[in-house]
Simulated assay, not measured.
Amino acid sequence: MLDYRAEFDAEVTLDGGGELRARGFRLNIPHADVTDSEITALLVAALAPQRVERAAVSDVRIIAEPHPPAGDTEAERVRFVELSHVITAGMVTYPGLPAPEITPHLSRSASRGHYAAGTEFVIDRISMVGNTGTYLDSPYHRYADGTDLAGIPLERLAGLPAVVVRVVGSERGVTAEMLAHVAVSGRAVLLHTGGDRHWGTPAYGVDAPYLTREGAHLLADRGAALVGIDAVNIDDASPEAAGERPAHSLLLAAGIPIVEHLTNLRELPPLGARFTAVPPRVAGFGSFPVRAFATVPADEPPA
Rank of each mutant, 00 (worst) to 15 (best):
E7G: 11
A10T: 07
L14I: 02
G18T: 03
L20P: 06
A22T: 11
G24A: 06
G24M: 06
N28A: 13
N28P: 08
P30V: 00
A32I: 11
D33S: 13
D36H: 12
E38T: 12
I39L: 12
V44H: 03
A46P: 00
P49M: 07
V52S: 05
R54I: 09
R54V: 11
A55Q: 09
A56L: 09
A64Y: 10
P66E: 04
E74G: 12
R79Y: 01
R79E: 01
H85W: 13
G90A: 01
M91R: 10
M91Y: 07
L97C: 14
E101N: 06
T103W: 04
T103K: 12
T103S: 14
A110V: 03
D124P: 06
S127R: 15
M128I: 02
Y135S: 02
Y135A: 03
Y135C: 01
Y135Q: 03
D137M: 15
P139D: 13
P139Q: 14
Y143L: 15
A144V: 14
T147C: 13
D148P: 14
D148A: 10
L149N: 05
I152F: 08
V163R: 06
V163L: 00
V165R: 04
V165P: 07
S170D: 14
G173Y: 06
M178C: 09
M178F: 07
H181P: 05
V184R: 04
R187V: 01
L190Q: 04
T193K: 06
R197Y: 13
R197P: 10
W199Q: 13
W199L: 08
P202C: 08
G205W: 06
A208P: 04
A216S: 10
L218M: 01
L219V: 03
A224E: 01
A224Y: 00
A224K: 00
A225L: 01
V227L: 06
V227K: 04
G228D: 02
D230S: 05
N233H: 09
I234C: 08
D235E: 01
D236C: 05
A247R: 04
L250N: 06
L251N: 09
A253K: 11
G255H: 03
E260S: 13
R266D: 11
P269A: 11
P270A: 11
R274G: 05
A283C: 10
G286R: 03
A298P: 03
